[in-house]
Nucleic acid binder design. Structure first.
Lengths: 140, 140
DNA sequence: TATGGTTGTAACAACAAAGGTTACAACTAT
DNA sequence: ATAGTTGTAACCTTTGTTGTTACAACCATA
């Protein structure tokens, strides 16, 4: 099982906006061309990024723009904008309370799962859009 | 998007084996009772744990047993036994090479994704089955 | 050697999520 | 008024998860 490509697409979208918003109108069609996925999917993801307060979108005339400096947008922000699940892990729901393990597994595992998820989120929190943009520019 | 419950089920299975293998025959039916899922699903997951060298399963007579001390089985071992995907993240496949971002995004993001995944795996590597078993016993 | 409790696996089915597509009303600078 | 755009609804296909029945193969034991 993998995270959906919404996360990498959303990151790609934000990189494109950060890169091009000064010189051109960044529409869903423009983004569709760079990312190579259907413009409707772009618009949906763009909607999530907009709900999360990262981008603004110009009605009618079209075009998306950053609402925050790239330095203040982290991979965690992006991830949370497009992946709505609270927990990474799906716990089997009805362990048998008459079994000593079934009765205790939730209280044992819940904390571990939280620790694991936090480790991942902390790593994401340390990577900003501006870092990615700088790296991309170096490699062009 | 969440990981399948195979991971928590597999952990539950191993805890049950570690807890009960001395006193009773741990069959898929026995496990099914504690975990409260279909025995066939148990048998499939048990098969993955067996392929990964963590448990042995007695043909004909039935019953599963640990092949390693609980101290040497980590949550990462369990996770890898039941989740076969190499990467946690699904990357959109065909970014446009004619766009400067499309051309570079893979080389920029691949390393970040690896870092994030490693952070998670390192955390999993530090939690052993014996730790979970001790905690469970305390809470009984 | 026949039995009975197991395992391993095939073959389904139901359901949900991801990803894609077409279509179109609503919006707005020009 | 027009033309380009957004937001969204309504589909579709594919894949993965979870659950189920069925049954051949296995093996300790009576």
């Amino acid at each position: 099982m993998q995270f959906s490509s919404r996360f990498t697409i959303a990151t790609h979208i934000l990189l494109c906006i950060a890169m091009f918003e000064k010189e051109t109108k960044v529409t869903s069609n423009f983004l569709s061309g760079s990312i190579n996925v259907n413009p409707v999917i772009i618009r949906n993801i763009l909607g999530s990024l907009s709900s999360a307060g990262m981008v603004g979108i110009k009605q009618g005339i079209g075009g998306a723009y950053l609402l925050k400096p790239a330095k203040e947008i982290t991979l965690l922000d992006i991830f949370k904008a497009v992946e709505k699940e609270e927990s990474l892990f799906h716990f089997h729901e009805n362990p048998n309370p008459e079994c000593p393990i079934g009765r205790t597994i939730h209280s044992v595992m819940d904390g571990k799962i939280e620790t694991i998820q936090s480790a991942m989120e902390n790593e994401m929190k340390d990577i900003t859009l501006s870092m990615l943009l700088e790296e991309a520019k170096e490699k062009m």
